[in-house]
């Protein structure tokens, strides 16, 4: 039994099932990333896992939107998925990750707008 199966609160189970249903719809490499993110987020869980729900929700939303956009999974999570997950949860290195995301945002906007103009 893995960590997530120990979550038994009924509303959490329902939310959890909805997450997995959404994850099913992701491309394979994205689904693999989702599984890894879940694993690496588990140390940040409180007793019930409730505190992680909104974080997982945001991560899944990010994966869904990026997959729909046709981005490679590498562009979304980078090569350090442990660090990425820690940053999502506010663990070690969250601040430097946020700086990285900030730069990524401005870089992506500049690149895409340039492509649009050209």
């Amino acid at each position: 039994m893995n960590f997530w199966e120990t979550i038994t609160g009924s509303d959490l189970t329902r939310e959890w099932k909805a997450f997995e249903a959404r994850a099913e719809a992701l491309p394979n490499d994205y689904r693999a990333a989702w599984d890894e993110i879940k694993t690496h987020l588990s140390p940040y869980s409180d007793f019930t896992g409730r505190n992680l729900m909104p974080i997982l929700d945001g991560a899944l939303g990010l994966l869904e939107e990026s997959a729909a956009d046709g981005q490679s999974i590498y562009h979304v999570v980078g090569d350090d998925i442990v660090g990425f997950s820690a940053a999502l949860a506010g663990g070690v290195g969250a601040r430097s990750y946020r700086d990285k995301w900030r730069e990524q945002l401005n870089r992506n906007v500049a690149r895409k707008l340039e492509r649009l103009g050209g």
Binding site: P54, G61, L62, R98, Q104, V109
Partner: peptide, 24 residues
């Protein structure tokens, strides 16, 4: 317009990562 769409998508992606409580 296309330029607005691009920026909107990138902003949304950033916010999903940063996770402001207000987003919900």
């Amino acid at each position: 317009p296309p330029d607005y769409q691009i920026v909107y998508q990138e902003i949304q992606r950033y916010l999903f990562k940063v996770g402001p409580v207000d987003l919900v």
